[in-house]
Design a protein around this nucleic acid. Structure first.
Length: 152
DNA sequence: GCCAACGTTGGC
DNA sequence: GCCAACGTTGGC
């Protein structure tokens, strides 16, 4: 089983939205590195730290489960979608993929970015690296355990 | 709203 | 294949 961190703007899609939907398609990823993680490495059962970004209090709200592996993201071909990708339409197929996930556990205490920063055991977390903008990041088993044990 | 740090695009 | 210009991310 692998561990990941996935960023989302809560104004667009939040942990509460995930709990309400039960199963959500993670569409709209338009970055090759992030796509390749989903396409090549994501497996059903992987665990995901659900991260709220670009908001008043950035941080991890809970843990989600991958319930379906990667498949074509159809929004790339949809002219009316904000995620429309002209290059995909031109080639006739979406070059982007998505996965499905479900809520697994809401954290008992929200793991704010500020609090994560202060944890001496999490200093190698990619999220804390300067200039790190990847919306999907791998997380080590030990970092995942530290986060779950501290805030889960 | 600012801006640093990236990623992508496109002319050459 | 280089690289300048441009666009995006995301914390603050």
């Amino acid at each position: 089983m692998k561990y990941w961190l996935m960023k989302t703007e809560p104004d667009v899609f939040s942990w509460a939205d995930l709990e309400q939907k039960k199963i959500a398609s993670w569409d709209g990823v338009r970055n090759y590195q992030a796509r390749n993680f989903m396409r090549d490495e994501f497996e059903v059962g992987d665990k995901v730290l659900f991260y709220h970004s670009s908001c008043a209090e950035p941080g991890i709200a809970g843990i989600a489960n991958i319930v379906r592996g990667s498949y074509a993201d159809p929004t790339a071909l949809d002219k009316n979608s904000e995620y429309f990708d002209p290059a995909s339409l031109k080639s006739g197929q979406s070059r982007w993929v998505m996965v499905d996930l479900s809520p697994f556990k809401k954290f008992s205490k929200f793991a704010s970015l500020a609090a994560i920063r202060q944890n001496v055991n999490l200093q190698s977390l990619l999220l804390l690296r300067k200039g790190q903008r990847l919306s999907i990041q791998p997380v080590t088993a030990s970092d995942f355990a530290e986060i779950e044990n501290t805030w889960g």
